[in-house]
């Protein structure tokens, strides 16, 4: 198989209405699954998909990754965890996809479709 496709993007999201961090986390998990589903082989990812979701204050972030479709790994920062029921107006996403077997244009298309969940 040829080289891995590397896709990185930083994306600012602004919500029409404030959402709780719990709801944002659920949406992010769905987003990762949606990307993973389209880029999987035999229900695993031949690479990794990682997203860092940050809100404006320091050390307030959620890290998500997926390497197999049955599990989205979620690691919240202590500040995110502490404020889990409070609402946010938006967040900055750093999306990093490294995957074998798919072209850059395919990965880009899949990520763009997944971002429409927001």
């Amino acid at each position: 198989m040829s080289d891995a496709t590397v896709f990185s993007r930083s994306q600012q999201l602004v919500f029409e209405m404030p959402v709780t961090r719990i709801d944002a986390e659920n949406l992010l998990q769905k987003m990762l699954y949606a990307i993973g589903e389209q880029l999987s082989y035999n229900k695993i990812i031949l690479g990794h998909i990682k997203v860092l979701a940050r809100v404006s204050t320091e050390d307030d972030y959620l890290f998500l990754s997926i390497t197999r479709l049955d599990c989205v790994d979620v690691k919240p920062s202590p500040n995110w965890l502490r404020a889990s029921t409070s609402t946010i107006n938006g967040m900055e996403l750093d999306i990093n996809v490294l995957v074998f077997g798919y072209s850059l244009s395919t990965v880009e298309k899949v990520v763009n479709a997944a971002l429409r969940l927001f």
Partner: peptide
């Protein structure tokens, strides 16, 4: 990749 994720 251009966006560092793990370092956070």
């Amino acid at each position: 990749g251009e966006a560092g994720v793990d370092d956070q």
